[in-house]
Computed example of a mutant assay.
Amino acid sequence: MFDIVSINMASILVLVLLAVTFIQSGYDKVMDWKGNLEWLKEHFANTSLRNRVPLALLHILVLELISGILCTVGVIQLLVNQNRTYGLYGAIFSCITLIMLLYGQRLAKDYDGARTVVIYFIPAVMAVFWLS
C-alpha cells in the first residue's frame, strides 16, 4: 500500500486539494444559495451576465460538484488499483470549471479574484499532466 501511495503522492495531494475546494464551494452554494445569488448579482451587475446570474450559478454549482466528486473517486481509485481514469476526468473538469470562473472574474473586472482562480488552475493543470 505504501508503494502505491508514494508513487502517486503528488497526484493524490492535488486531487484532494481540488476535491476539498470544489465540494466545499458547492456545499456553500447549496447551503447559502440566496446569499451567494445576492452577492453575485451585485458582482455582475455591470456585465452581460447580469440577467443570467441564477443560471450561471447553477452551472458553476453542477460543475463544481462533478469536479469534486470525480477527484474524490479518483483518489480512491488511485489508492485501490492505481487506475488514473477518474482522477484525470476530475482534473479536466476542475480545469474547465476554473476557466469558467476565471472568465466570470475577468468579465466583472475583478482582477484579484481572477488571480486567485489562476492559483488553483496551476495545480489542476499539473494533475492533468501527471494523470494523463
Rank of each mutant, 00 (worst) to 15 (best):
M1Y: 10
F2V: 08
F2E: 11
D3H: 09
D3G: 04
I7E: 14
M9W: 07
A10V: 09
S11H: 03
L15C: 06
L15E: 01
V16A: 06
L17T: 05
L17H: 01
L17S: 09
L17Y: 08
L18M: 14
L18W: 02
A19D: 03
A19H: 05
V20K: 02
F22I: 03
F22G: 01
Q24F: 03
G26K: 00
Y27C: 01
Y27H: 04
D28E: 05
D28R: 02
D28W: 02
K29Y: 04
K29D: 02
V30C: 08
V30R: 09
D32G: 02
W33C: 04
G35K: 01
N36Y: 08
L37D: 14
L40Q: 06
K41M: 12
K41D: 14
E42D: 08
E42N: 11
F44A: 10
A45F: 00
N46D: 13
T47C: 07
S48P: 02
L49W: 13
L49S: 13
L49K: 09
R50M: 09
N51S: 14
N51I: 00
N51C: 05
A56Q: 07
L57V: 11
L57Q: 15
L57K: 07
L57D: 14
L58V: 10
H59D: 12
I60P: 02
I60K: 02
L63W: 10
I66R: 02
I66K: 01
G68N: 07
L70G: 13
L70H: 07
C71P: 06
C71A: 15
V75W: 04
I76L: 14
Q77T: 12
L79R: 11
N83P: 01
R84Y: 13
T85I: 14
T85F: 14
Y86Q: 11
G87D: 07
Y89K: 05
I92S: 08
I92K: 04
F93K: 01
C95Y: 09
C95T: 12
I96F: 13
T97E: 09
T97I: 05
L98H: 04
I99G: 05
I99P: 04
L101N: 11
Y103I: 14
Y103Q: 12
Y103L: 12
G104A: 08
G104K: 00
G104Q: 00
Q105W: 04
Q105L: 10
A108C: 10
D110I: 02
Y111N: 14
Y111F: 14
D112R: 10
G113T: 06
R115E: 12
R115A: 15
T116P: 00
V117R: 08
V117N: 11
V117A: 06
V117C: 06
V117L: 06
I119L: 13
I122R: 05
I122H: 09
V128N: 07
F129H: 08
F129K: 08
L131S: 12
L131I: 08
L131H: 01
